[in-house]
Write a protein that binds this DNA or RNA. Structure first.
Lengths: 145, 145
DNA sequence: GTTGAATCTGACATTCACGTCAGATTCTAC
DNA sequence: GTAGAATCTGACGTGAATGTCAGATTCAAC
C-alpha cells in the first residue's frame, strides 16, 4: 500500500507519515523503481498506535524509546528504557488526575451556565445578573451551588 | 506583590506570567511610578488555575474563552462559550480514555520487561531472547502474558 | 504517448508556550 | 548617592509536530 492510502486509512496526513518514518517510528519498503514508499498492511495499526501515544502526550523521542520493547524479538530492555516507561507511567497518572479535576470543574461551570441561561436570558444573549453577585476575588473554577 | 514573588509562589517563570497577562488571562495593576506590575494576592490562585488548565491541555485561546464564565459577575454566557466548554468537556473525556488506555498498555510492557530482566539478563544489560519469539507483525502495545 | 494524479525530496513557514538576551529603568540597602 | 537586585520592553530563539510549496519523477488511464 502506498502512502496516500495509508493516510486515508489512518486519518493522518501524508506529511505526518513521512515524519513518523523520519523519526524511526514507522518503516517502509521501496517500490521496485525505488521511487515510492510501500507500506505493509500492519502499518495501519502501527500508525494508529503512534497517534494514540502522541495524543497521550508522549513525544517522538519517548515513543522511539518504547517501541523497541514492543516489536523486536530481543528488545533492548535496558534499565534506562524501563525507567523511561515508568516515568511516563507516573506522568500519565498525574496528567489523568489533572484532567479529571479540570473536567469536573468544567462540568460545574457548564451546569451553572446552562441553568443560568435557561432561567433568564436577555435579548443580547447574555446572562442577566439577577442572582448573587460573584466578586472578582471569587476566582477559581469551583461554583458553589 | 511583584512579579518575582508571584513567580516564586506559583513555581512559574517570570516570563510565563508576562505571557499569561499578554494573553489576557491574568491582570495586574501598575505601581505608582508605572514601572512595575503589581499583583493582587488572588493572582496566586489564578496562576495555579491557569497552570492546571494548561496541564490539562487547554490552549490559551480556550482558557480565555472560559475565564469570563469564571470571574465576572455578568459573564458572557453566550451559546458559543457554552458550546466551547462542552466541546472541551467531551475532548477531555476522550483524552482521559486514551491516556488511561496508553497507561494500561505501558503497565503491561513494564511488567513484562521487569519480569524479563529479573529472570535473565546478560552482561550487556539486555534481555536474552529465551522465550517465545515475537514476530514483527505482532505490533501494538498489548503483551499477552 | 500524453495527460493528470500521486509521490518524491528539500526547504522554509507556522503555532504555542515559553527561554533568553540586550539595554534601559527603578527599587532597595547601605 | 551609589552599588546591586529586580523589573521593564522588545525582540529573536527554540522544539515539536506538522503545513505548505517548488520542482522533479513516476504511476495509472486513455
Amino acid at each position: 500500500m502506498r502512502i496516500g492510502e495509508l493516510a486515508r486509512l489512518t486519518g493522518s496526513s501524508v506529511r505526518s507519515l513521512r515524519y513518523y518514518e523520519e523519526q524511526g517510528l514507522l518503516d517502509s519498503q521501496r517500490a521496485d523503481s525505488g521511487a515510492h514508499r510501500v507500506f505493509h498492511a500492519d502499518a495501519v495499526d502501527r500508525v494508529r498506535l503512534l497517534r494514540q501515544l502522541y495524543s497521550a502526550g508522549l513525544s517522538s523521542k519517548v515513543i522511539a524509546s518504547i517501541l523497541p520493547c514492543v516489536d523486536t524479538p530481543s528488545p533492548e530492555l535496558t534499565e534506562e528504557s524501563i525507567a523511561i516507561m515508568q516515568a511516563e507511567y507516573a506522568r500519565l497518572g498525574e496528567q489523568m488526575a489533572a484532567i479529571a479535576d479540570t473536567r469536573d470543574q468544567l462540568h460545574h461551570l457548564i451546569d451553572h451556565a446552562t441553568r443560568h441561561l435557561a432561567a433568564d436570558v436577555d435579548p443580547a444573549g447574555r446572562c442577566a445578573d439577577t442572582d448573587r453577585a460573584r466578586t472578582h476575588s471569587d476566582s477559581g473554577l469551583a461554583v458553589t451551588p
